[in-house]
Nucleic acid binder design. Structure first.
Lengths: 190, 190
DNA sequence: TATTGAAGTTGAACTTGTTCAACTATTTTC
DNA sequence: GAAAATAGTTGAACAAGTTCAACTTCAATA
């Protein structure tokens, strides 16, 4: 079944009845994105939330100096959205690009609203997921402040080896917040 | 009324009926913390969530190298909690210290659970609050990667002047992720 | 009011990370 | 399979930020 992975994921974070689970899945449809294609581009309004079932995405922004800044990677089993753009109907500052041929379960903005109305339990599910997400962002801030570039690199490849292996050095460095030249030098000296 | 500020805050994020609002407030009690006192110390389990009604707190961690790392400041109208410790009943890595004589509305862990049970709407409220929080954390990561220390400093004092004015340079620098000596040099050259 | 302690300042030497440019793989594309 | 584009490497000069130590200023306290 196509939504199997999604169900596994929500059952980790909430206790949905069988009927709720079925109902939940109906709000999502599958979307295939081929390598290098964009699910969202800077300037567009994000009208969906996505759950990756295959492949991997890079979520990044391009700053005023023209540098790419990778916010996060979304591999299988990860969510994918621009919360700010989605909530406030404003142009996104993010790009979501497939690193390889990928598949996403999409829920549209309209469906997200009726999801919360028809399955009140979904509020708790997303509340808990968002809490976990905050913890991860806080940890990342602290790592950025307390670790050197090399330490951050080692942390990344040891904690996310599957994702790291799919990336070019340029993509990795834009996630770590360093230049690709410096990443090259870091790797040499290890 | 003591909970006025809290009500104002929740009404920004949710539509509670009058009775829900009253009910909501009953779960909180006031706690006074004097300057330099700790609401939570590294190693303790965080058994509360707090909403600041007066004063200001600094939430920081001390890393392996012995450096203080300020995660955020919680002034009037801000929430205060260690989500990870609270959710997973594990020792906190955070310290929450009052920068001045302060007051917090506290909800205990038990009460938080029954809050969600008695006021299902509270799920939506916190879900939305957490979403907003994620947006703020993401923005901070991007600023850390794309701005220089001086640019981050200027951003901080222009966007949070009330908080910034209460801080020593050492506290500000530990939030920006730089040494206090360097902050001193930055300030001189502006 | 004197004393202590903590906070801010400054300089010099140092480390970390950047920039730019030239070069070498490695992929993509036609 | 050749050409073109993209990715990784290296070095030298540079800029950003740290460290340590000495000094000054300001607040807290006895």
């Amino acid at each position: 079944m196509i939504h199997e992975l999604l169900l596994k994921h929500i059952n980790k974070n909430a206790k949905f009845s069988k009927s709720e689970q079925e109902e939940f899945c109906k709000f999502f449809h599958t979307k295939a994105i081929s390598k290098k294609e964009f699910l969202l581009e800077q300037g567009q309004i994000c009208k969906f939330e996505g759950f990756v079932t295959k492949g991997c995405f890079r979520i990044f922004t391009i700053d005023k100096k023209g540098n790419e800044n990778t916010l996060y990677f979304a591999a299988k089993d990860w969510w994918l959205m621009d919360i700010d753009s989605f909530m406030n109907h404003k142009p996104s500052e993010l790009n979501m690009q497939a690193l390889e041929d990928s598949e996403v379960l999409i829920i549209t903005q309209k469906n997200k609203l009726s999801l919360y109305n028809t399955i009140p339990n979904a509020e708790k599910l997303f509340r808990i997921m968002f809490q976990k997400s905050i913890v991860a962002w806080q940890r990342r801030i602290i790592r950025n402040h307390s670790l050197t570039a090399k330490e951050r690199y080692v942390h990344f490849i040891t904690n996310y080896p599957e994702i790291a292996s799919k990336l070019t050095d340029r993509q990795t460095s834009s996630y770590l917040g360093i230049t690709h030249e410096f990443l090259s030098k870091i790797k040499k000296l290890s």
